[in-house]
């Protein structure tokens, strides 16, 4: 759109913008280099001893230990297990919530709306603590339950928005050929809404995967706890920054690949859904309606 706002740049303006671009690259690279050098510089600590810089080999030699990688692997597996189980239940709950929320009877619809508002307005962390202390489920199931309920509520709202955005003719056609209202919803409306909302649902699953790291606060041995706390306690404060970078890299690898998958699916399912409904929503994690979380 920006190209519409001003006339096409002439040779002088183009040359100028090229110069600014090169200067920009230099500024950014200089800034990053300064940051890396600052991290690498040895620092005097409080008691006068000189601490080696962050890139010093003495801060990284713990990585030669196989047990480190085994612990990291266990942590990553625990994170993925929790995310997988929670995603499964969140999807089921999401479908259930979307049906209850758009039920014909006010006796079902109104309480569901209140429960959904309550769940979406509360921090996941608080929900985890609540489930852990009140139902004494153990940290794994407390995390899974809180994550499924919270993300289920958001997925449910997304699905409901998807069903609402369908042309009315879809439902009317279903009813006209003699399907019951429930069967119309299941066989005509729901598949279209699900496909249309798939990008948002996957974006929400990325949020869920990120939020499993909250479970370390209620004591679950996932990637953050096993990779950072346990290993720093075992190997010493010296390695904290190294372990931090490695844990960060693992999280980024997991989340970025899931985000990438979301984008691929959005591109694929876009044109197909476009035949029936216009305006495929952009896959943005917080586009899932009021109170959608990240």
């Amino acid at each position: 759109m920006s190209s519409v706002l001003y006339d096409a740049p002439g040779p002088k303006a183009r040359a100028r913008s090229r110069v600014i671009s090169v200067v920009g690259v230099i500024i950014i690279i200089a800034g990053l280099t300064a940051l890396i050098l600052a991290l690498g510089a040895p620092k005097p600590s409080a008691n006068g001893a000189i601490q080696p810089g962050m890139w010093d080999p003495t801060r990284w030699d713990a990585l030669l230990d196989v047990e480190v990688w085994r612990t990291l692997g266990r942590g990553a597996l625990a994170t993925l297990t929790m995310a997988g189980v929670a995603a499964f239940f969140a999807l089921i709950l999401g479908v259930l919530f979307s049906f209850l929320r758009s039920a014909d009877h006010a006796a079902i619809r109104v309480p569901t709306t209140i429960v959904l508002e309550f769940v979406r307005g509360m921090p996941v962390l608080l929900m985890m603590l609540f489930i852990l202390l009140v139902f004494s489920t153990g940290s794994f199931w407390a995390g899974v339950a809180a994550l499924s309920v919270y993300n289920g509520a958001i997925i449910g709202e997304a699905l409901r928005a998807g069903i609402n955005s369908l042309p009315r003719g879809q439902r009317e056609a279903g009813l006209a050929i003699g399907l019951t209202p429930i069967s119309t919803r299941f066989r005509i409306e729901f598949p279209q809404a699900f496909r249309q909302m798939l990008p948002i649902i996957i974006a929400q699953l990325v949020v869920l995967l990120k939020d499993t790291s909250l479970a370390f606060i209620v004591g679950y041995e996932e990637l953050l706890r096993s990779g950072l706390y346990t290993m720093t306690n075992f190997f010493g404060q010296r390695y904290q920054f190294s372990f931090f970078l490695i844990v960060l890299a693992i999280y980024l690898a997991m989340n970025l690949s899931l985000s990438w998958l979301a984008r691929v699916i959005a591109r694929r399912s876009g044109p197909k859904a476009g035949k029936l409904v216009e305006a495929v929503p952009e896959p943005m994690p917080n586009a899932a309606g009021a109170g959608g979380g990240f």
Partner: peptide, 23 residues
Amino acid sequence: PIASFRAFATVYTELVRNTPLTL
């Protein structure tokens, strides 16, 4: 309109958005 600033902002957005808040 400057490509290097655009690229920097894109990388920043993607990295921070995919890092857990706890981290």
